[in-house]
């Protein structure tokens, strides 16, 4: 069985520092694998541990530095890494991103059985790229997956966590699933994994390699665009700073309508 795991490189938000002007300091901020995608990798590795002949390919679209992230994915248990990278991809929205990743899968990795994505990326937070890839490939999708189970290579059971509870579905493969974060500690790389990662060759595909044109990708291929960016207006007026906890407690009583007995 062939599993593709789509991962994204995001800035490490636990490491965000603010500059004097209240902007985010970008320099020196480490890039990490999107936390939801870490669990996409985990789910793939679990399947590999439980089934015979599972091959996992980690796939990302991004700048050339993303090779390092793919190597980390190999270090924890993936077999291959594929980077889709081209300057012309810059500025892609979720539609163009989904189309680009789907084109790479169709042209280079079409013998897959299962695609696993993280439900959200913590930088853009749209939760759209996974379903967009599935739509472009014309395969079924299951989102908000808490648990994958009972895979026999032909189909897989997935339990979704939705507002009202838990829904279990069975889907025929090939299919795409988007997984939520697990509550367990992710796998740490083992020595032989790290050695394998160091020796690994990451395959890189450009726009031409996957059969797309400049009109399909990046800003040109994106239906949406940012018309303006602005600072939100503060309508609450000046903040009153309390000198001590007693003053603050009085405010809490007043605002919260708490009795003074």
């Amino acid at each position: 069985m062939k599993i593709l795991v789509c991962i994204k490189q995001v800035p490490d938000t636990t490491d965000i520092k603010w500059t004097e002007n209240n902007t985010i300091q970008r320099e020196g901020v480490e890039s990490v694998i999107n936390p939801f995608d870490v669990y996409a990798l985990e789910e793939a590795i679990k399947l590999k541990n439980n089934l015979e002949n599972v091959e996992i390919t980690a796939l990302t679209m991004g700048p050339s530095q993303a090779v390092e992230m793919l190597k980390k994915a190999i270090a924890i248990g993936c077999d291959n890494g594929v980077l889709i990278s081209d300057r012309k991809f810059a500025g892609a929205d979720t539609y163009a991103t989904g189309k680009t990743i789907a084109a790479a899968i169709k042209s280079k990795l079409s013998d897959f059985d299962l695609i696993i994505c993280g439900q959200f990326a913590i930088d853009g937070d749209t939760a759209q790229t996974g379903p967009s890839i599935a739509a472009h490939l014309g395969i079924p999708q299951i989102t908000y997956v808490k648990n994958l189970d009972k895979c026999d290579g032909k189909c897989i059971y997935a339990t979704r966590e939705i507002e009202e509870g838990f829904e279990t579905l069975r889907v025929d493969l090939p299919a795409l699933v988007c997984v939520l974060k697990g509550t367990y500690e992710p796998t740490r790389p083992k020595i032989n994994g790290i050695i394998k990662a160091q020796q690994a060759n990451i395959t890189v595909y450009s726009m031409e390699d996957i059969g797309l044109t400049p009109d399909d990708v990046g800003i040109k291929g994106s239906p949406t665009y940012v018309s303006k960016a602005f600072r939100p207006i503060n309508t609450r007026g000046e903040c009153e700073i309390c000198k001590d906890c007693d003053t603050l407690a009085l405010k809490i009583k007043e605002f919260g309508g708490l009795n003074n007995e």
């Binding site: 939760a127 759209q128 379903p131 967009s132 939705i162 949406t224």
Partner: peptide
């Protein structure tokens, strides 16, 4: 933007080759 909405919306928008702005 419920779990159902966030499941169906990108499926529809990608199939119709249009854009979708989330949340």
């Amino acid at each position: 933007a419920t779990t159902q909405g966030r499941d169906i919306a990108p499926r529809i928008s990608a199939s119709l080759h249009t854009g979708l702005t989330a949340d």
